[in-house]
Amino acid sequence: MTGSPSARDAAGSQPARGRFGRWRDQAVALGWLVVVWGLLWGDINWANLAGGLLVGGAVLVFFPLPAISFAGRLRPRALLVFAGRFAVELVRASLHVARIAVQPGYRPRGAIIAVRLRVPSDLNLALTAEAVSLVPGTLILEVDRDSGTLYLHVLDTHEPADLDVARERALIIERRIVRTVGSGAELRRVETASPERGTRP
């Protein structure tokens, strides 16, 4: 079962991390699945541990996922910054949408914009897409994986400048995510590259 994914891993852009890296990823995933299983039962004992290992192993065997290239490392301080800003902006965005939902006779206008991310790795694409959907008044419609482009629907636009603001915000979210989990090279791309405003394809 592990033969073909590790071959795909080696064939990908990632230089061969070998069988060991693949096994380590699987072990980490299994560990998390066991933790989830334990939380679901709300109790830690040997039966739950064994059951978690069994179910987690079955999940990993029957639903194999392509390897994600996690080249960076987790930075706790950046994670805290990200979580804090995320919470604040989630509250702000929620109140905004709730307000225009109950405002009588208001029809919000919208727009669909393309945002080209500066770090087009799968992990960054997925995390940014998730975060951008929740936080800054935008919603993911389509993902172009090859060029690393997200297509966002922006709610409640009034003037063309609002689209640039939404683009900026999505790129700021990306930068915070890369600061949290990105590698050094990815971090340099995000920090040095000037925020390109004209990202139209």
């Binding site: 389509e142 993902v143 297509y151 063309p160 394809p201």
Partner: peptide, 18 residues
């Protein structure tokens, strides 16, 4: 809609994104 940059892409939405 004030803008639709997805339509400007022009590939007809045939991409297989993740």
């Amino acid at each position: 809609l004030d803008a639709d940059e997805l339509a400007e892409r022009g590939s007809g939405g045939g991409s297989a994104g993740p």
